[in-house]
Design a protein around this nucleic acid. Structure first.
Lengths: 209, 209, 209, 209
DNA sequence: AATGAATGAGCATTCATTCAT
DNA sequence: GATGAATGAATGCTCATTCAT
């Protein structure tokens, strides 16, 4: 189970905290996309969020908390959407392919956010970094589970180590769609990218009779 | 062919420029590894390089030039080493596998540097970014050439689009060894990582007769 | 006669004002002792007093009013206690010595409060400062009266100027027990301190027959 | 022996450090007298000292360092001047009286500075406070030495405890001339103050034959 | 009367860059 | 060419005070 790092707030109303932080995250993501975390000032974030710098600091303890909230939020969103789209029908292999396809679509849809998270995560302090990496780990495990089921059903053939690496490769190739956009989007449409990647990821592992 | 972005210097002596910039890069890489580009000050870089802040600015125009020099230098080093190790013997497929193996070993050896380059590249201004991405492109092409030769010789079967994506995947999986170190190095030794990745990258494409 | 500086309040009920200000003073003294006036925030005072920051400002006009209330309160307390203990028996000299002893005991008992008052008084604005100094003056006069009576009765011999200075010296030596605590309390117990000070203060003035 | 707390500086030239810090101290004292340490901003100090805020921070580590430098400087100055004026002639008692007189004159001359030091010392962090109190202790000891010599020569009669307290009393009465200025200067000229205090301090202890 | 969220002027501190020596 | 002192705009953060509820 995942715990959230506690971001301190001076405000008591939990509902209000949610609302304000959502405004904050939205503004921050926009600015981080444009100029990165370090080049964005807390003042700009407050303004973009629609309130004063003083109010901003009623809802966080430090600038870095904003980065944490942003990263946390993006992971939540990605994983929430992915879980919602996991299919219950078809063979295990079809389900896995469906998961990959969904994941790549979600990442494409949240391209900017994912890129931000991907590039700025390293600026988090150890503490917060741990929580975020924990989430990434959770996604790897989810993907690995789907692979394991294919293995158990005989639809894929590989050992556990290979399945773990495959899971990592899938996730990285999703992120790659954002951080190599400068090159890859000139070569493929999203659907082409997905279908080729799936082919390269899976088809050598298929046990052909 | 690649041109270097011109980094301005007040000093005429080209040899001296080379020497000083090398000191600078060495110091900067060390500091960027420790604390990242934004958290490293020019003063610290000058000190680490062994000269004064005034002297530092005799050899660059702005702090960002240092980042460019660092990124440029790391790419140069990786690609220089890789070229040196490209084999002329064996089948094309063996040469490709050898190139991947060499590449992964080089990245492992320059782990810290590659990570820095990987994480800070985005902080470069458009101008400099273009040059650095150009280098990455060159490496993709080099890898794709090796793949194409396998295709032409019939050792691999895939279309051009697939070969391009494969080249990207290889490079990204090399970098992945650094930016997923927190997880992957717990799961595999470098040699395991290399052999499994090669298997997953290539073996479904092998035309089996 | 002493007037109180008027501290404005939005609240009508005089009894309630008294209660709330008492809570406020109690909390503030505690915090001022710990961290001084400037390092204590109004929020902290409100919290310590047991009500909200909004309520705090219903009973004062500005942060400085709290300091005034605190200083005023401490003077009141010291002088109230002292008056209560002034003896009506014995010779005038015995009464004076009794007063000094009482005063030193009171100061010892209210050590923290006296120290706060002593150190923060200077932060009061002119206006408020005047009122507080007025109280100090009143205490000097009270002490001087006791001395004058000794002079009139022939138990002490000195002119008026000397008696005034003596009164000041007594009060300062009382405060000294707090502001030199770092050194003096290592050298003397309170009772030793009192007896030696009385000896040095008075015995050369005693007319010995 | 007294060690100075080390105040960090980015500048290497020791002579320059001395000069700039002297400017700084002079400006700071002026401002602290006017508005106290907490109400004075670093910018104001820089401006008063005649340089930019950036330059200010080349010579100190934090605002509090300025307060330490100020307090340290004032103690140095007082004790330097006092030592210079200690007489080598006359009886021990005459020397003591001379020392007290000199001390009171020095304090009068440096009235503002002493008041500042007296009122702001408590704002120093533990570390710095220790050093400053150490200096005060040294002055107490110096005064006590003079007293002891009078005792040994039979010019004064008292035990060691009494001599220690006497030393403290002398120093406090010096400071009192500044922190009770609001009242005492209306009652006495400096010379009157000195002569009465000396009389009250010493004459009961004189062994009269 | 009580509350506490909102405000924004104000502050200490940093750091890339310049330029006189 | 080298040095390093000087600069000041910029930034993260605080906190006394207000006011709608």
């Amino acid at each position: 189970m995942l715990n959230n790092k506690k971001v301190p707030s001076m405000v008591k109303d939990q509902q209000l905290i949610k609302v304000r932080r959502a405004q904050m995250i939205k503004g921050a993501v926009k600015l981080f996309i444009e100029k990165g975390f370090h080049r964005t000032t807390t003042r700009e974030i407050a303004k973009e969020a629609g309130f004063s710098i003083g109010t901003l600091y009623e809802y966080i303890g430090s600038k870095e908390d904003i980065l944490y909230l942003v990263c946390d939020d993006i992971y939540m969103e990605v994983s929430k959407r992915l879980k919602k789209q996991l299919s219950e029908n078809g063979t295990h292999l079809e389900r896995l392919k469906q998961a990959i396809t969904s994941y790549f679509h979600i990442i494409d849809d949240m391209s900017d956010e994912v890129l931000v998270m991907y590039q700025e995560t390293k600026s988090l302090q150890k503490d917060a970094l741990k929580y975020v990496l924990e989430k990434e780990k959770e996604m790897v495990e989810m993907m690995q589970n789907l692979i394991q089921q294919c293995i158990q059903s005989g639809e894929l053939t590989m050992n556990e180590q290979e399945s773990k690496l495959l899971a990592h490769n899938i996730l990285v190739q999703g992120q790659m769609w954002t951080f190599r956009r400068w090159s890859i989007r000139k070569l493929f449409t999203l659907d082409e990218y997905i279908s080729i990647q799936i082919k390269q990821l899976l088809y050598n592992h298929t046990s052909t009779i």
